[in-house]
């Protein structure tokens, strides 16, 4: 819809149009995230988390990548510092996303601070796309946020409750589901030379450290080695 049409139909309350646009944009994302949430809850419960703990983690952390990483190497008692460091590394991309989006949102500082609790790859990507044509309003953002957040929290809770009936995760290959999921996610970053070097170095170092030193050191050392490899492999004067 063009800006002129927006003004012509201004008798329709703006916020209602914005909410509708947010719901329309986020719907396919929510459908795709539903089984992922079920899977997360099921494997989390297989790893020994209670449904209440799964609800709290999904509702408060609300970051798939970091939650998957935490569950993949979950041990009792939970290694708090290791989890904090892995979470920081995985979510560091949010800083760039927030920096890029902030000039394009039409919200007060306080509203933005609340809104960014719901910052996800998906909501960010959709908002950046919308920002090419018009500012991102609070109504648009929160319509997406509420749907994604309830979808994620509910689906992982249902997964956790159903998961406790599934029994041994190895029998149905569920223990491998995260590995497969992560491989799928990594493929989303493309096949550029720098990415391939990053993946190879990170995988090699992590496997070696895990074999000779042990968990949880493989995560930080593998990740840092991969990042260093990307720095070295990238052309010195890469544009953008």
């Amino acid at each position: 819809m063009s800006r002129a049409m927006d003004q012509a139909s201004s008798f329709v309350p703006t916020y209602r149009r914005e909410i509708r646009a947010g719901l329309r944009d986020i719907a396919p994302v929510a459908v795709a995230a539903l089984p992922i949430g079920l899977l997360f809850g099921a494997v989390a419960s297989a790893k020994g988390m209670s449904p209440l703990e799964v609800i709290l983690m999904s509702a408060l952390v609300f970051a798939g990548g970091a939650q998957f990483a935490a569950i993949e190497s979950w041990i009792q008692p939970a290694p708090i510092l290791t989890l904090a460091f892995a979470t920081l590394l995985i979510n560091a991309r949010h800083v760039l996303m927030g920096a890029s989006l902030t000039p394009k949102v039409r919200m007060s500082r306080v509203q933005t601070l609340l809104a960014y609790f719901f910052l996800t790859d998906e909501a960010w990507a959709l908002s950046e796309r919308r920002a090419l044509e018009r500012p991102v309003t609070g109504a648009y953002w929160f319509a997406m946020a509420v749907v994604l957040w309830s979808n994620w929290t509910l689906s992982s809770t249902i997964g956790a409750i159903l998961g406790s009936f599934l029994g041994d995760p190895e029998r149905i290959g569920a223990d491998f589901a995260f590995t497969a999921l992560f491989i799928g996610l990594v493929a989303g970053f493309g096949r550029s030379r720098v990415t391939l070097v990053t993946v190879a170095v990170s995988a090699g170092v992590a496997a070696l450290v895990h074999y000779f030193i042990g968990a949880p050191w493989h995560v930080a050392s593998g990740a840092l080695a991969g990042i260093a490899a990307a720095y070295i492999a990238a052309p010195e004067e890469a544009r953008s």
Binding site: E72, I90, R93, F189, A230
Partner: peptide
Amino acid sequence: RAKAAFDAIPPAVLVAVIAP
């Protein structure tokens, strides 16, 4: 290079988690 290193963080972490 700084941008390349920053962009490499998500795949590097994901791969390190599942490598073992």
